[in-house]
């Protein structure tokens, strides 16, 4: 085994959930017990996280709309996708030196975007 790149790409929880569901839908032959176990357990975990209600389209919309802030790093955006903020406190946990980088209204806007695209269950968007 040779390691070429330990972190070729980061994945969002949703991407992993979709990939694992695909594996689960295929019939796993015998000898794939470890794969079956880890797939099952990881799906169980992910289905209890916000990514279960997310969709690729909504993630893309979130990422696009968040670009307007022009101040968030990629890893901060990924953290928001995986641990969607619903309170200013959550944003403070993700964004370092928050007060110097975002205004209060930008924080509120971020929370609205997060509720709309990342945790749709908390956001009533029926009128849209």
């Amino acid at each position: 085994m040779e390691i070429l790149n330990p972190k070729y790409q980061v994945l969002s929880n949703l991407e992993v959930l979709m990939a694992l569901r695909e594996i689960k839908d295929q019939k796993l032959s015998q000898g794939a017990r470890n794969l079956a176990t880890i797939t099952y357990e990881t799906i169980q975990y992910l289905e209890n996280t916000p990514c279960k209600d997310q969709s690729e389209i909504n993630l893309l919309k979130f990422i696009t709309e968040v670009k307007q802030f022009n101040k968030l790093t990629k890893s901060e955006v990924l953290s928001m996708v995986n641990e969607p903020p619903s309170l200013p406190l959550h944003i403070q946990l993700i964004v370092e030196d928050l007060e110097e980088r975002l205004t209060e209204s930008q924080v509120d806007e971020l929370i609205q975007l997060s509720k709309k695209y990342l945790i749709p269950s908390t956001h009533d968007s029926r009128h849209e």
Binding site: M1, I3, P6, G31, A32, N34, L35, I38, T39
Partner: peptide, 18 residues
């Protein structure tokens, strides 16, 4: 590769999923 790696920890890489 799944048989060999799935659900195992590779040193300095992490827990191999799939």
């Amino acid at each position: 590769l799944n048989k060999k790696l799935a659900n195992k920890v590779l040193h300095k890489i992490g827990l191999m999923i799939s």
